[in-house]
Structure formats: structure tokens, C-alpha cells
Amino acid sequence: MNGSSSGGKPNQQSHGMHTDPLLDPSTIRLLERLSVSAKGRIRGTMQGKRRSRSLGSSLEFADFRPYVPGDDIRRIDWNVYGRSGRAFVRQYWDEQELQVHLMVDVSRSMSFDSQASLVGEPDHPARASAAAAAHHAANKLYYALQLAASVGYTALAGEDRVSAKLFANSVTGELPPLRGRGSARRLFHFLTDAWQTNRQAQEGTAAAGSDDMYNAFMSPSSLPRLAGQTWLFTDGLYAEGMERVLSALIGARQEVVFVHLLSPAELRPDLNGELRLIDSELKTGKDVALGTSVIESYLRALKQHQSDIRTLCGKCGAGYLFVDTGIPLEQTLHSIFRAAGFLRG
């Protein structure tokens, strides 16, 4: 354990990353005690720790079956043969690994940093301090990557297979399935890279992201091939396509966990006066004179949006987790992931 935790950190440093490690040691220690829970029996490919729906070689008894030639004679229950004179073979549930797919939305709206991107106003007093301070504290993307790292590490530590995908307009990055705790380094590297890339891309002008979530899932390659559990980290700020994405994932035999991240700036906008609101993805502006009534109706719309997604997830049998990125990560893992039962410890 100690080795793996220290394994992630120096690697990042050795790669010359300027950011902090995604997860600090205390979080990793916490995660080691947890495992990713899956609802039903899993149908994997490789031996794992999870009960599978297929019969196999675990210690968990499943059934008896009359012996047929060709069966492993080590499986004959000799006690039964002694009493009945007929050979029966003991069958056990197979234990297979769980395929955990982490899908992180890296569209502009996710990486949007309300404080760091006050580019329109160079004199903005908040800017200087914000740049120096932990500017990613409430960044949704960073938070999503942290969460993905947590879930991924938990899965790896639980000997499950973990793969990761980044998507915006389309799938922009993919991490092939990893196994074993030792692969955690690669996962972390991939996710940290994603953060770095995204930050660089953000400084450019290219807009990434669209109003239709399904854009990213149109190609079959973007969907996981193997049945398993898909964690979808997104802010849900899509006008459409969410339902189709969910049904596509479920059609790909995925158990979907929808992690809905919203930053405090979105949850509790502290805006006032006459503002030209610029969409981070579309780069279009909207002149709004903000007053309490406008903020109130915004909050109503937000609540409506949130409950829409929750209802949608409920209909599709997907899990729904709502995360306020203003809350510290450990607290989120504790209070939301564990309490909701998606991580078990």
C-alpha cells in the first residue's frame, strides 16, 4: 500500500508536472479500504474478485451437475458419490473482474474556471489572487479527474479492470484497460495529462464542447466493448443527448453511474449588475441585467435541470450522484459515494 501510494506521487513529479498530485496519500489510504460496488453479477473475461454470472473456479458453491466425461474429476463430489453411487460434479461461481469505465467530460464547460478566466477584465481584483491560489480548487474538471482517479484507484486496488476515456465533442483520449494496483501510476498519469492538456487547450481559443452530449458517443468505438460499470463524470450542461447517451451505455451492458458535478459559481452565482455572459463553449454573449428575481429564476432553472437528470437516470436504472465541487474531495467520497453505496468499504 505504501509503495503504491508513494508510487503515484514521485512519478508525477518525475514527469515534470507542475500540478499537485491528483490524490494525496490520505485519500489513497482511504480509497484502499474501499471497493467499487456493482449491483449485479458481473460477466467479465478474466479472473477477478467479483462474482460472475458464469460458473467458474471460485470458492462459492453454485450447483451440482451430473458428471460427464471430460469434466475435471477433481470437481466430483465424492461424498455424494459415496452415498448415491452416482458421480456429481460441484459447480462454483466464477469470480471475474469488474470492467470499470471512467468517462470524463473534458468539454470547455467542465474545465471552466470562473475566477481564472475573467479575461474580459484585466483589472478584476479577484484575478491576481485567484491565479496564485489553488485555482483548481473548485474546478469541475480537476475535481472530476480526482474523482475518476479515486474510483479508478479503488477499482484497481480491488483487482478490477479500469479503462478511462475523455470526451468533449468526441472522444479525445483513451486509456486502455489496466489491471492491478501497479497500474494506478498509469491511470494517474493519464488523468494528470488530461488536466494539463486541457489547461493548455483552454488558453487557446479553440472551443470544445457542444450542446449535444450524444456527439461524443456516436461512434461505436466510444462505447465500452465489455459489459461493466461506466462512471460518467460530467456537469450535465447539455441541452440534449443525455437520454440517448444513457441508453447507448445501457445498451452496451453498462451499469451507469452518472456523477453530476457543478461548481459553486454555478450553484450559487454571485453575479450582479449588467453583465454580458459569455458562454465558454459557444463564445456567444448574452446581455443580462441581473437582479434578485433573475437569480431566483436561475436557481429554479438549475433545480429543474438537476431533477430532470435525476429522473432520467432513475428511468434508465442508472445511478445518480450530485457533487458540489466546492466541497473537499474526501468529504465527497465519504458522504456521497460511500453513503450512496457506489463505493464499499
Binding site: D211, R276, E281, V294, A301
Partner: peptide
């Protein structure tokens, strides 16, 4: 005074507000 440019993550919710 002109409108202050204020970037936000998405117009999605604001559109709803203004559409209402």
C-alpha cells in the same frame, strides 16, 4: 457603461431563465 464581459461555463441554464 458597457456590459461587463463575464464568462460563464454555459448558457444552458441562463437560456432557460431568459426564455421563461
Amino acid at each position: 457603461r458597457t456590459y461587463i464581459d463575464t464568462p460563464i461555463s454555459s448558457h444552458l441554464l441562463w437560456n432557460r431563465v431568459l426564455k421563461e
